[in-house]
């Protein structure tokens, strides 16, 4: 299994991380659980990574279980179910199409809006820093980000619907 198994598993890394984030993991926990899921898969004698869809289904189930286990019931089943519902509705397979749709939508934004997203999600600027950078008030940044996110949600949904047509 070793090398090919790891190679095949690595292809699912991003998708699994996205899925765990949707369930409610923070970034670092999602990173750790991805590693744990892979360890489970590698130790499982009959695990077959050659069929990507089946492999991802197995990894997803394992990730869900490990997330619930790690929270020791501090996360409600219905929250996880909601995460699963959103994942199934929005993401084909590993969620790559969702990210691709987002990339497309970001590409259609005006330069200033893109810069605001970069400042927030790439550079980690808080509202105060972004307000100074864009010569706006902190509330103005909050509203602008809320509008941008609403636009991106709609744009992604439309893009995915077009793709599926």
């Amino acid at each position: 299994m070793a090398t090919r198994g790891l190679d095949a598993l690595a292809e699912h890394r991003r998708g699994l991380w996205r899925y765990l984030r949707v369930l409610g993991c923070d970034d670092a926990t999602a990173d750790d659980l991805v590693q744990e899921v892979f360890v489970v898969a590698l130790r499982r004698a009959g695990f077959d990574a050659s069929d990507p869809a089946a492999a991802f289904a197995f990894l997803r189930t394992t990730a869900r279980h490990l997330w619930l286990k790690s929270r020791r019931r501090r996360v409600a089943e219905r929250e996880v179910e909601e995460g699963d519902r959103v994942w199934d509705a929005r993401c084909d397979g590993d969620g790559g199409s969702y990210v691709a749709a987002l990339r497309h939508c970001v590409g259609t934004l005006p330069e200033r809006s893109r810069s605001l997203l970069e400042a927030t999600y790439r550079d980690g600027d808080g509202r105060a820093a972004a307000a100074q950078r864009f010569a706006m008030s902190a509330d103005g940044i909050k509203s602008a980000l809320r509008r941008l996110r609403a636009f991106l949600h709609d744009c992604i949904a439309q893009r995915i619907a077009e793709e599926r047509r």
């Binding site: 890394r13 991003r14 991380w17 996205r18 984030r21 949707v22 369930l23 409610g24 923070d26 970034d27 670092a28 926990t29 990173d31 750790d32 590693q35 929250e79 909601e82 995460g83 519902r85 959103v86 994942w87 929005r90 993401c91 969620g95 969702y98 990210v99 987002l102 990339r103 970001v106 997203l117 970069e118 999600y121 790439r122 996110r149 991106l152 949600h153 992604i156």
Partner: peptide, 26 residues
């Protein structure tokens, strides 16, 4: 969950490096 999905995708699109095996302490 929908907001978290958008957050995760934004983190990816704007260059969040996916942690290697030696990921940060958590």
């Amino acid at each position: 969950a929908e907001e978290r999905l958008l957050d995760a995708a934004l983190a990816e699109v704007f260059g969040r490096p996916l942690a290697a095996a030696t990921s940060a302490w958590s």
